[in-house]
Amino acid sequence: MTPNQTDRIATQVINVLVLIVVLILMFLLGDIILNGFPHISWHFLTSPSSPFSAGGGIRDQLFNSLYLLILTLIISFPLALGSAIYLAEYAGNNWRTGLIRTAIEVLSSLPSVVVGLFGYLLFVIQFHLGFSILSGAIALTFFNLPLLVRSIEGSLHAVPDTQREAGMALGLSSWRTIRSIILPAALPGILTGIILSAGRVFGEAAALIYTAGQSAPILNYADWNPTDGSSFLNPMRPAETLAVHIWKVNTEGVTPDAISISAGASAVLIIVILLFNFGARAIGAHMYKKMTGGK
């Protein structure tokens, strides 16, 4: 075989492999959308689930997912921001920083089930928080932190050093420079990072089954007092999310229409995550344009 023949064959092989990957993706999306869409209805989205009979909806699970996501971001964003500022602005180039970075890498490589079990051990059992939204949000924070720290740090690094020098040379404190000059300049990147991480958090289940729990008690959406047991805002109640719901109806096998519920719920999950992805891109691009004065 001549080199040219080999070249042609190799290129063909690569093309075929790429085609297979594309087909897999198209199959996946097609499967989710074609099987899931017919099950999405107003009734499906707005009625509570019914574990032992057909026709249940996903109202509470959908709400729980969103509520958990918001709580998680409220806890994880300030922590991640502070840590990223430390790493990008204050950390020296020494062994201590190396150790800190290693710790964050270790955290990001831990399987989410291990993170979830740690949350179970510490918060559900030791601190007696029980299966609750709060335990779930803390577990998700652990899972979310390393990624968020990394993306925020990247956005901070992307702001040119000349901006820091400009602030310092005017007699501004580093903190003021970071807060009022570096952070606004890094905002589009930071926001994109947050939204992308939100997509991940929204679909996560393994860290939640033993922290936020697997049950969805009946919620009272008219009760705005977060300390009431049945209030939808109560952070101490167990809360099954959409992703956990998909897992549960499939593994427990007591819900007669488990397949169609999972199909519908999967489609909803994917649509929300797609919205997050597109939203992140659109917002990032828009803010960048606005800040640079359209140039």
Partner: peptide, 22 residues
């Protein structure tokens, strides 16, 4: 600047404590 250092050092310390306790 002292405030800033305290805030960011606290955050990073929280992560380190978290990893060690896991």
């Amino acid at each position: 600047d002292v405030t800033g250092r305290i805030i960011s050092y606290t955050c990073i310390a929280a992560i380190i404590i978290l990893v060690i306790s896991i």
